[in-house]
Computed example of a mutant assay.
Amino acid sequence: MTQHTAPLQRVAVLIPTYNEAENIEWIVGRVRAATPQVDVVVLDDNSPDGTGEIADRLAAADPQVHVLHRKGKEGLGRAYLAGFAWALENGYDAAVEMDADGSHQPEQLPRLLAAADAGADLVLGSRWIPGGSVVNWPVDRQLISRLGNLYIKIALGMPLNDATGGYRVYRAEALRSMDLTTVDSVGYCFQVDMAWRAVRGGLRVVEVPIEFIERERGNSKMNGDIVRESLVRVSRWAVEHRLGQVRRALPGGSA
């Protein structure tokens, strides 16, 4: 577990985008209004709809808005890793993950930051703990998310109720303690991967209830390939973890 001696001073809110022209100005404005002390970093994967150009205009008008232009669509994980590297290189105390579509409400960010200020290494905005909720999700979508998180919890022995959620705060020390160079999860399994690394690393992970709102504008990036990637990777990690436990339990096994 990392040791914290000072409250967060500099926070970077990372917002990955691909074809979010309808949402980017709206969401950046909400972040700046709800948490004027933070900086916003748009991670644009060369959106053909002009999202990057809109972000550049916002950055030109506001010194607390920055844009990282990436060469193309490489997946959520690669975008966030680029954002983490930028935040660490530029001396930020924490990095926030937030979707561009409004499903993660900027107005709830202060409660996540408060939990990080109180000593959490990683703060998860959780839909599936008391006080958490989802809006405009059909029952089958809720069931898939709940069952998926239950499988992750059981398979990995991870004491988290919403390991797949993408609204979260990482302290810089926590990111530095993880071996980010070995992260190769591309889709939304990236969120499980990072939470699993934090738990295995003995970091303090805290879940804070949020209200998740399904996007109203633009197209969702969720698809069957993302779900399949998550199931395959989680199952593989579970097997590797169990085998590692067995090896350590054998005579002469490594600690």
Rank of each mutant, 00 (worst) to 15 (best):
residue 63 P to I: 12
residue 68 L to M: 15
residue 70 R to D: 04
residue 71 K to S: 14
residue 72 G to R: 12
residue 72 G to Q: 11
residue 73 K to P: 09
residue 75 G to F: 00
residue 77 G to P: 10
residue 77 G to E: 12
residue 78 R to P: 00
residue 80 Y to H: 14
residue 80 Y to Q: 07
residue 81 L to V: 15
residue 84 F to V: 12
residue 85 A to G: 10
residue 86 W to G: 06
residue 87 A to I: 14
residue 87 A to C: 13
residue 89 E to P: 14
residue 94 A to S: 13
residue 94 A to N: 13
residue 97 E to C: 07
residue 97 E to R: 08
residue 100 A to N: 04
residue 100 A to P: 07
residue 101 D to T: 05
residue 101 D to Y: 03
residue 101 D to F: 00
residue 102 G to E: 07
residue 102 G to L: 03
residue 103 S to R: 11
residue 103 S to C: 10
residue 104 H to S: 15
residue 105 Q to H: 05
residue 105 Q to D: 12
residue 106 P to A: 10
residue 106 P to D: 05
residue 107 E to F: 02
residue 107 E to L: 01
residue 107 E to A: 15
residue 108 Q to L: 08
residue 109 L to H: 04
residue 110 P to L: 07
residue 111 R to V: 13
residue 111 R to F: 05
residue 112 L to G: 05
residue 113 L to F: 06
residue 113 L to Y: 11
residue 114 A to G: 02
residue 116 A to W: 04
residue 117 D to H: 02
residue 120 A to P: 03
residue 120 A to N: 11
residue 120 A to M: 14
residue 121 D to T: 06
residue 122 L to M: 11
residue 122 L to N: 03
residue 122 L to D: 01
residue 124 L to W: 05
residue 125 G to L: 09
residue 126 S to C: 11
residue 126 S to N: 02
residue 128 W to Q: 15
residue 128 W to S: 14
residue 131 G to L: 02
residue 132 G to T: 13
residue 133 S to H: 11
residue 134 V to I: 15
residue 136 N to L: 11
residue 137 W to T: 05
residue 138 P to M: 11
residue 138 P to D: 07
residue 138 P to F: 08
residue 141 R to Y: 01
residue 143 L to R: 07
residue 146 R to P: 01
residue 149 N to H: 03
residue 150 L to W: 10
residue 151 Y to N: 03
residue 152 I to V: 12
residue 152 I to S: 04
residue 154 I to G: 01
residue 160 L to P: 02
residue 160 L to Q: 00
residue 160 L to I: 07
residue 160 L to H: 02
residue 163 A to N: 04
residue 163 A to G: 08
residue 164 T to D: 06
residue 164 T to G: 05
residue 168 R to T: 11
residue 169 V to C: 08
